[in-house]
Each structure stands twice: as C-alpha cells, then as structure tokens.
Design a protein around this nucleic acid. Sequence first.
RNA 1: GUGAGCGUAGCUCAGUUGGUUAGAGCACCAGGUUGUGGCCCUGGGGGUCGUGGGUUCAAUCCCCAUCGCUCACCCCA
Length: 419
Amino acid sequence: MIKAVTGTKDILPSDIPRWNYLEKTVERIFSAFNYKEIRTPIFEETALFARGIGEETDIVGKEMYTFKDRSDTSLTLKPEMTAAVVRAYVEHSLGAQQSLVKLFYMSPMFRQERPQAGRFRQFHQFGAEAIGSKSPLLDAEMIQMSYEILKSLGLKNLTVKINSLGTPETRENYKMLLKNFLEDKKNTLSEDSRRRFETNILRIFDSKVESDQKIIKDAPKLVDHLDEESKADFELVKDQLKKSGVPFEIDSSLVRGLDYYTKLTFEIDSGSVGAQTALCGGGRYDLLIETLGGKPTPATGFAAGIERILLACENEKSFSVSDPAIDIYLVKIGDELESFVSELAGKLRKENLSADFDYLQRSVKAQMREANKLNAKYVLFIGGDEYKQGLLNLKNMSTGKEEKISLSNIETLKLKLNL
RNA sequence: GUGAGCGUAGCUCAGUUGGUUAGAGCACCAGGUUGUGGCCCUGGGGGUCGUGGGUUCAAUCCCCAUCGCUCACCCCA
C-alpha cells in the first residue's frame, strides 16, 4: 500500500470543519486590520531563501526540499513565507502604489525535519507582513492581531513573549560581550551549546539543559545593551501592548532562528501542545527588502503554525463546530423511482438546498438511517399511494411531524421549509 | 542527524507463560416494522497479527533484520 509521505498528512472530510472555522476566523481578523491576501507559488528559486533566510540557518542548511528542474535551475519548496512575499513586493513594485503595504497569507510550507507532535514536513502557516513603515505601532499590531486570532479560537493557555534584537551593530557588539562572558565557562556547557558557541551563540539561551541555564542565567542581557532607537521603539511597543490589553512578558532569551530579524521579535507559546510550544512568531526585518534587491524599506510580520494551533485547540477543547447538516434527504419507496428522485434532487439543488438520496437501492429503513446520519433537516418520501395522487410526504426530522405536499409546487419547497 | 517506545479488523484496543477455526467495543451491511431515523434486539461481512528471515514438531507470541508510526533531542510555526 502506498501511504502519504513521512511528515505529511491528509486533511480528511471530518477535519475540514475545524480547518474552515480557523480559516474564517483568521480572514475576519486580518481584514478587520485591513490586511489584503497574497498568494505566491509553492516553489521559488533556491537563491531567494538562501539569501533571505540566511545561508547559515538550519532551515537553509539542512531542511529545505530542493530540486533541479529540466533547465537545471535549483528550485525549493517554500519553507517560510516572508522571503516569498518580499520577492513579490519587490518584483511588482507594490510599494509604488501605496507607501505602506499590509499583506496576509495562508499556505502550505515544507521543511524536511523529523516529525513530532505539532511538527510536520508539509505544514500550514498563516501570517502577515506590513512593509513600508518603521513604526513600532505596527510591531504591536502584529502581536495584537495574532493574539486576537488565538483568543478568538478560544485558546487560553497562552504566553506572549517579546524581545528586541536591536540593530545588527548592537547585536554584534552584544555577541562579543556574551562571548567574553562565556569564554572561560565554555567547557562546562553541553555539547550542543558548545556548538552554538561557534555557530549561533545567541541560541545558547534556548538550551533545555539545566546546567546551561544556570550558566546563562547571569549572562549580560541583550535588552540592557540596546541602541537608543531600538530601546525607544521597544518601550513604545510595550506601551501599546498595555493599552490594547495584550498581556506579555519580556524574554531576553528569545532569539529567532532566521537571520533577517532586527529590533522587535515576539513569540506566542501555548502550554497545551507538546514540546513545540510556539504557536506563532515574528518580528521586524528592516533589512530584508534591501537584501532581496529592493529599496531600503522597513517591515514587520509574523507567521503562525496552523496544525499546532489546531492541536492546542483540540487539547483545550477551545471551540466546537456543529456537525454539517444536509437540508433534505429524498427517500424513495420503490427502486423504479430512482430516476425521478434524481431529477427531483436536481431541482432542489437549483433552489440552493443541499439534497441527496440513496444510490445503493437500499431499504426505506436504511435510507432513513442514512438521512439521520447526514443530519438531514427534512426527509421527503417519494412513492406509494401519495405519489400516485401527485403528493409527497415531507417529514421534519427534529419534530418527527409529517405533512403532504403537492408535487406540482415542489419549487416553492424552500419557502415552506424556512431554510 | 541522535535517542526511546510502539506496529493484531476501517477506528480504539484485548489476547495467547509458543499449541486447533485470532477476540471485544465502535463503525459498516441485513433483518426484527412486506412504506419511516436516532434507542434496543438478532445475525452477517471484514484480519497474509507491518514485512522478510531464523529458532521450533508448531510462531501473532521468542530472536535478528527491515520498513512504518509515535514521542523527545536538534531546530522551528
């Protein structure tokens, strides 16, 4: 048997109502904040992600699905969306028509990682990008929007964490500071953290090893070494979050894994999922547009993992969707009426009613069971003496009451049913 | 890439200290009402016990390999 590829999942009909509910919620809130949807191709030239995300990152270094097409161009299934959105922004000069462009997306992403709870190789993200302003109000807006979406989905167990990475210069200075601090303690660090010391020293803060945490606890903090502008912006974001009632905590160890972030970064964690607690994350990326060939343009954004959010919602039973119901199920008494029933169903469907009937020549009882399973609001019996007199028997499935209606005014059934 | 756990019906799982036709609940189908659902009752279909090899008179059970799934590390949404 051929199965779905490792790390990929079918979203089955029984899953769809929950996905639809999430998607509608997301669209509603994005549009309230005046973000417009953008859709970009599933794959891009590999160079886009290599340059945008950073050659040294894990995503680019070992997690991308990269392949060559017949003209020998290296292509990559998108592992994240920001680089693609920025590419489209630059390519179509979206900034020429409006100086601030607010975009949102929902799309599958691909990363070749080992699957685990809340992590897949094909997964889905929604997110937003605001390109063209350095206002901290937009950073606060990103946090507020994502928080509101999660809240609207009924989630409770949330932690909003914010940090500022400062400008690249302040960050480099700080890295030196940290390096000096850790230099003589290096040998007592875990193996992973010793590796991080060389590759990405800031990530040592993320270590789950207790002994590492003890060492790093007394390390200098990035927030204490910010440049004046980053510091002022950070204060503004905090202020704005307080005003909009978003609870948050400052997490000086919050470092994002993509190279393009500057200044404000944030993450929203859930205590209701497995080890992968981040439901969404984002921040400011003032240098990326330039890196990708555009004019220097400040921007900020975030991305959220849909599977992870739905997992948290399930574990918290944070929302429920009502069972899908069909308006009317046609029960035929006698198989010779099949073709007539099919025609009748067609008429009802034209009236925008959802209608179905039995194609398996099953007994009336079996047809009723089917109607019940489909949550049918009404059942229409076709056949027997009534049918000969031009009448049909209409049954309300919740009250159980039946009434006879005339075959000739079947088109007005919709009004009768109050549907 | 590393580590641990688990693979028995469509689903959730029992089971045999190795021994005849491998079980339950749910789901599915049929009947109980020769024209009427949700409850109930009766019956039925469905499994190469993940795959390959080994040990044995005998393997779903023990051993080895392999594939897959799950969780965690790493990393990230």
